[in-house]
């Protein structure tokens, strides 16, 4: 729900307003509709796909946590909301990881290179990392991995100003959508057997570790949130005071993440997903209960009020 507050606007003789002043209309023209061109589509085990789409306006305005609402196939005209994993504003492309869960994404996976895919985006409020907490702990589960990659890349490019020390932990019960390899980066505090990483992040100089019950080599055997707790427990109180957590993944994983964050007294932001229709705030189809600062409950739209929320607001202690 918008919360515009009383507006200073001119009123005609019938009491009709002429709209809020321009500074109250900053939301206007912030989401673009583009005929994107499918540049590449790479399949990974478990019906996972990484696609790259030429969509320069979306790429230029996206921030970590943003998503795009894609038309998968004209025969299935409802769009699908998918998190952005990487963008290149200069080259004008966006990259998305998805897993087939129904006929819409199955149709998307069949699109040939060069196909036109309508892209509505970027949408949503992104993550905000705070420089006073440079030890950023990023947790991605399954198809919740993409925003973590985007955030990690963003922290890499912003390194000049702040000594960000991101650690990315990823969990998956199926094979990861990349070829894992032993990390070149030492991470004190994680179990010795956890050596596998996401090569892209390692190449960027960003530490990452993988967790799974799937028995994949070099992965921590357990939940990604257990791996996070392991690392957090290794920190002294001063170091813990410099940690901020960010997470995206299945709801049980996010609930567990919220619990871990509370246990260690670390602030945490989570990115939610929900079925969506409009994705621009018009239909309230994606609303979820959120605890507000005064303790009251409000229904907030995942699309434009989120998808990133404070973990305690969406998973309060009594629930999670």
């Amino acid at each position: 729900m918008n919360n515009p507050g009383p507006a200073a606007c001119s009123i005609d003789e019938k009491g009709r307003g002429r709209g809020a002043p321009p500074e109250r209309r900053v939301h206007r023209d912030t989401i673009f509709v583009e005929d994107g061109r499918l540049l590449s589509q790479q399949q990974y085990p478990g019906e996972q796909f990484v696609i790259r789409i030429q969509a320069p306006q979306c790429a230029a305005a996206a921030v970590p946590g943003s998503f795009a609402h894609l038309t998968c196939n004209p025969e299935r005209p409802m769009r699908r909301p998918l998190s952005l994993m990487r963008v290149d504003a200069k080259a004008g492309w966006i990259e998305i990881l998805y897993k087939i869960v129904g006929p819409g994404l199955a149709a998307l996976s069949q699109q040939p290179l060069g196909a036109t895919i309508s892209v509505l985006g970027p949408i949503g409020n992104g993550f905000s990392a705070h420089p006073e907490r440079p030890r950023t702990l990023l947790i991605g589960g399954g198809v919740g991995i993409p925003p973590m990659v985007f955030l990690a890349e963003s922290l890499k490019t912003r390194r000049a100003g702040t000594p960000w020390q991101p650690l990315v932990l990823m969990g998956s019960e199926i094979e990861f959508p990349f070829r894992a390899r032993p990390s070149q980066i030492l991470v004190p505090g994680v179990p010795n057997e956890a050596i596998a990483c996401m090569p892209l992040l390692d190449d960027w100089g960003i530490a990452s570790r993988l967790a799974s019950f799937g028995g994949f080599p070099g992965c921590f055997h357990g939940y990604v949130t257990d791996l996070a707790a392991h690392w957090l427990a290794s920190l002294d109180s001063q170091a813990l005071g410099e940690v901020e957590m960010f997470a995206c993944g299945p709801t049980p994983m996010l609930q567990a993440t919220a619990r871990v964050a509370r246990r260690f007294g670390v602030p945490c932001q989570v990115s939610l997903e929900e079925f969506m229709a409009c994705a621009v705030g018009g239909c309230a189809g994606c609303a979820v209960p959120v605890v507000q600062a005064d303790g009251s409950l409000a229904m907030k739209r995942v699309c434009v009020d989120g998808p990133v929320f404070d973990a305690n607001a969406v998973f309060p202690p009594q629930v999670s």
């Binding site: 206007r28 509709v33 018009g282």
Partner: peptide, 15 residues
């Protein structure tokens, strides 16, 4: 009704 919120939501979309 119910598709465009309270009148300003779709103006987020450029064009």
């Amino acid at each position: 009704s119910g598709c465009v919120g309270f009148g300003e939501e779709y103006t987020r979309v450029e064009g």
